[in-house]
Simulated assay, not measured.
Amino acid sequence: MSWLREVFGVSKPVVGMVHLPALPGSPLYDAARGMEGILERARQDLHALQAGGVDAVMFCNENDRPYTLRADPATVAAMAAVVGQLRAEIRVPFGIDILWDPIAALAVAHATGAQFVREVFTGVYASDMGLWSPSAGEALRYRRAIGAEGVRVLFNINAEFAAPMGSRPLAEAARSVAFSSLPDGICVSGPMTSMPVRAEDLRAVKEVVGSLPVFINTGARHDNIVDLLPHADGVIVGSSLKVDGITWNPVDPERVRSFMAIVRRLRGE
């Protein structure tokens, strides 16, 4: 049995994003609303996604702009606190994404009982955050060290807000990562948040990684999911489910319901 069906209960699962407001210590943090404001916004979005029928959710510090490559201790603590306080209200499998720190994401996932993380684990990039060179070896050894082997790792192999320093085609990089870095899944992205991945990139990656699950990572919308999902094993979706399709807005329950109706038809449900 594919681990996707084991974890999510369906083929081609939809993972809806719970984008947290800026956390303490980041430039956009709203000190007047404080942690209670962050918690309430996360609760609102979580309930809207679950009511709309998504198969899973993923918590992310999306508004901690400008991003860093190592999470501050306050970020880790705040993420763990919010997810921990919502734990009893989460009715679907859930994941953690801390931009852009795989070690921090694994730590919070293990502490909160999350089933998966999504991060950039491999490659060298010229990015908006500077030179970016994550280490899958370091991250997976850390997962082993803390006893978090049950946390699945989704590798984003074409990092957002960045360009690879090397010249390998995407499919060639995917084949290499699948062989050498032990991912549980591969995520294929557009150039930044909310920008669509290309169908040809999904097809090329899927052809070379075989049974390894491939996820649409950015830009999935009502008007393109019919064309994209046949080439993937799942989809991670955030901005298009928000009010007016804007990343920083609350989740729109009607957008969630209508998106899931399209996906269910595609899955033959």
Rank of each mutant, 00 (worst) to 15 (best):
E40P: 00
I103E: 02
E40T: 01
I38Q: 02
M79D: 00
V82G: 10
V124G: 05
L39K: 10
V108K: 03
L69G: 04
L131G: 09
G137C: 03
V82D: 14
L106Y: 06
E138V: 15
T75P: 02
R41L: 14
H47T: 12
I38Y: 00
M129H: 08
R41E: 14
P66A: 13
V108F: 08
R118Y: 01
T112E: 09
L69P: 05
L69D: 01
D101Y: 10
I38M: 03
P102G: 05
G113N: 08
A114S: 03
A104Q: 13
T112I: 07
A81F: 12
A88G: 07
D72V: 05
D128G: 13
A107K: 05
R87E: 05
L69N: 08
F59G: 02
D101K: 09
A111C: 12
R87H: 11
A81I: 07
G52H: 01
L131V: 15
M79F: 05
E119M: 12
T112F: 08
V120L: 04
W100D: 10
L46C: 04
A42C: 09
A78F: 06
M58A: 05
V92D: 12
V117S: 07
R91W: 07
A109S: 09
L131A: 13
Q85F: 12
V92T: 13
A107E: 07
N61I: 07
W132T: 07
H47Y: 12
A139M: 05
M79A: 02
G52T: 03
H110N: 14
E138W: 13
G113Y: 06
Y125I: 10
P73W: 14
E62S: 12
R41P: 02
A105T: 07
L106N: 06
V124M: 14
G52L: 04
D128C: 11
V117Q: 07
W132V: 07
L99Q: 11
A74N: 11
P66M: 14
D97F: 10
R65D: 05
R43A: 15
I38D: 01
Y67M: 10
G130C: 06
V83E: 00
R65N: 03
D97H: 14
R91L: 11
T112Q: 06
C60S: 10
I38K: 01
